[in-house]
């Protein structure tokens, strides 16, 4: 895959998110870079606490990044005044894991969808009404649902409202933070299909976050694997699945439960040991070295840089053969 010629819908460069906590500073996101093209889905996978939601919140400006740059359709939003930033805010929307918690329980579906339109200058009432109706149709909600309250919907229907609200202002990017993790398989399929159909129609870009590699493998065009605040591998979906280079990616794939009772039984699997280390004291060198089955002495000292192994396949591992340090600037897909 070659570098995109068009302007990325979203570009994240060297992003750092730190929190000041009672136990001291914690860097939840530690220098993350990537870009997403219009109409593209970048999947982001990692285990609990690795910084996925922190990254998501920084992108939608719910938390202030400590450093780094964010560009939406080429506009750098980190260098803007508050007012300029506000103008760009509708361009980046978010869909949350818990659709109930993300919706005001006292607002009817119609009001939930109309509010962002009102706040962003869609003046005519008739125009807003028409837009709400078309949004509801786009996410497969019947028109008569317009007066229902969130608790009168099923989990899957609530997630549809969340998606419709995110779509209201024609965003360039929707950050989906575990949008199907709280849903049963049958509802998961409905929401995943809806997200795909919406993307085909609007060319919106998704950053799709999940701890479930099989869901991401289904929905994403490219996949980034995150471990303790850093991206350790980023590759086109198919490449990542068939030819993963990072030992952590391989461990995630091996751990994934597979439907093949003749060949894949838990008793016979080799599962990576250990727990995630504390984010307050991340291991020196490669952060994965405390659990890595093939670590060498160097891994505990030097942090491997995210390097290009060819064809847009980036990996941060000293032992991933073929990976060469990424050249500066150039492709938006690569870190500086």
């Amino acid at each position: 895959m070659s570098a995109p010629v068009e302007t990325p819908a979203l570009e994240v460069r060297d992003l750092v998110v730190s929190y000041n906590t009672g136990r001291g500073p914690l860097s939840a996101v530690d220098g993350v870079s990537f870009a997403i093209r219009p109409g593209e889905t970048l999947g982001l996978v990692g285990e609990s606490g690795c910084g996925k939601s922190s990254l998501a919140k920084a992108i939608v400006q719910l938390v202030e990044p400590s450093s780094g740059a964010l560009k939406v359709e080429g506009h750098d939003i980190t260098g803007l005044t508050a007012r300029e930033r506000r103008a760009l805010r509708p361009k980046v929307q978010m869909v949350f894991q818990d659709p109930m918690g993300a919706l005001d329980p006292r607002q009817r579906a119609g009001t939930i969808l109309e509010t962002p339109l009102k706040l962003n200058g869609v003046r005519g009432k008739a125009e807003r009404r028409a837009r709400v109706a078309s949004l509801m149709e786009a996410v497969g909600l019947r028109p008569e649902f317009i007066d229902r309250l969130p608790h009168e919907f099923s989990g899957g229907q609530r997630q549809r409202i969340g998606i419709a609200r995110a779509l209201a202002l024609d965003p360039a990017v929707i950050v989906c933070d575990e949008p199907v993790s709280a849903l049963d398989v049958s509802l998961q399929a409905q929401v995943l299909n809806l997200l795909r159909k919406v993307q085909r129609e609007t060319s919106v870009a998704y950053l799709f976050i999940s701890h479930d590699l099989s869901v991401v493998e289904h929905i994403a065009d490219r996949v980034a694997i995150m471990y303790l605040g850093r991206i350790v591998e980023l590759a086109p979906r198919e490449t990542l699945w068939r030819a993963p280079l990072h030992p952590y990616t391989r461990a995630l794939i091996e751990a994934l439960p597979r439907i093949d009772p003749g060949a894949s039984r838990i008793a016979d699997k080799t599962i990576v040991g250990g727990d995630l280390p504390s984010p307050f004291a991340p291991p020196k060198g490669c952060r994965f070295h405390t659990r890595c089955p093939i670590a060498v002495a160097r891994c505990a000292i030097d942090a491997p840089a995210l390097s290009d192994a060819g064809d847009g396949h980036l990996v941060a591992c000293h032992l991933a053969s073929g990976a060469v340090p990424a050249p500066n600037a150039s492709a938006a897909l690569q870190p500086a």
């Binding site: 409905q190 795909r196 099989s214 493998e217 289904h218 597979r258």
Partner: peptide
């Protein structure tokens, strides 16, 4: 249920939904 579930390595454009709830 089996067809609604994503199957890694076997990409489908759309999953087979189970309609309704």
């Amino acid at each position: 249920l089996m067809r609604a579930r994503p199957t890694p390595g076997l990409r489908r454009e759309l999953l087979d939904e189970i309609p309704g709830i």
